[in-house]
Design a protein around this nucleic acid. Structure first.
Lengths: 153, 153
DNA sequence: TTGATATCATTTGCATACGAATGAATTTTC
DNA sequence: GAAAATTCATTCGTATGCAAATGATATCAA
């Protein structure tokens, strides 16, 4: 290999050609597709609730009554988004709202009896959703993948 | 360990307790967060274009003129979604639309000169976005993660 | 104590994302 | 070649998702 060839190769390594950019190989693009697939699997198992709605119910079950904002933090939703989700759950009678006695800014959210029934009933289906989402991977691959995915989230 | 303990353990393995369900450990939830983080990184590098808009431009650069539907397939967007994306790109003069001469159903989409300039200019930034998204992982971990993620998408 | 800051919630505006319904054009099938 | 099925695109309705602006309340600091 000539000196010029080596120089060319060096340049190539440090400033990749635009031809090299393949959308289908970028993390962001594949991440978006993987998420889409999961949402689709979710909808096939749980038709009458969205993943964010489910997340709100599941988290309320874990922590009990909290403020709307705090719930948003726990399920990674900003204030504007969580409001819409809670509004819809309230309209369906799955959660109830009340005012914080001391701090009048806070809007407390809690499961209703019906909401509690719903989330208990749905958790087994959620397990299936997780399983089906991970079905293309072996048990060992799942462990590896979850560890790395967690680092990126 | 007593026979009863063993029985209990067996039952537990096959029908996990609802207490075991932790939202923060479910693929779907973490996938959503990882995607959110990526979008946030994207926005920090490329403020005037969204990831779907970028995907449309990048794919048009790869394949040249295509129908709107075909483009949607290539970038994993349904017909309704891709229409909105293309409408906005058209309004900004980055793509142009024309009718297919033979098949009158099809709406052809292509980059304008400005659109081509834009995508060429943005690709280096997109490389940085990919790098920053994957920054929490080592080179070896990146290879493993991308392989497994691709299986899920 | 009051003035500055921070927090909680709401609203508006914009951009995906997708199911379902519709209409137009093409292809398949018999 | 006509009927049936398919494909392409649009529209509508609903649901995230987030930035930015606003208002109410709470906390901090001088």
């Amino acid at each position: 290999m000539s000196t010029e060839d080596n120089l060319l190769k060096l340049v190539e390594v440090e400033t990749p050609d635009d031809q090299d950019y393949l959308l289908q190989e970028q993390v962001g693009f594949i991440l978006r597709k993987a998420h889409q697939r999961h949402v689709s699997i979710f909808a096939a198992h749980i038709g009458d609730l969205t993943p964010p709605q489910f997340a709100a119910l599941a988290k309320l079950r874990d922590v009990g009554e909290t403020s709307q904002n705090q719930l948003g933090t726990l399920i990674a939703m900003d204030a504007a988004t969580v409001k819409g989700v809670i509004d819809r759950l309230k309209a369906r009678g799955l959660v109830e709202l009340s005012k914080h006695e001391v701090d009048k800014r806070r809007l407390l959210v809690n499961l209703t009896a019906e909401g509690r029934d719903a989330i208990e009933r749905l958790i087994p289906l959620a397990r299936e959703i997780t399983q089906e989402t991970l079905a293309p991977l072996s048990a060992k691959e799942i462990a590896t993948f979850m560890k790395l995915l967690a680092k990126l989230a």
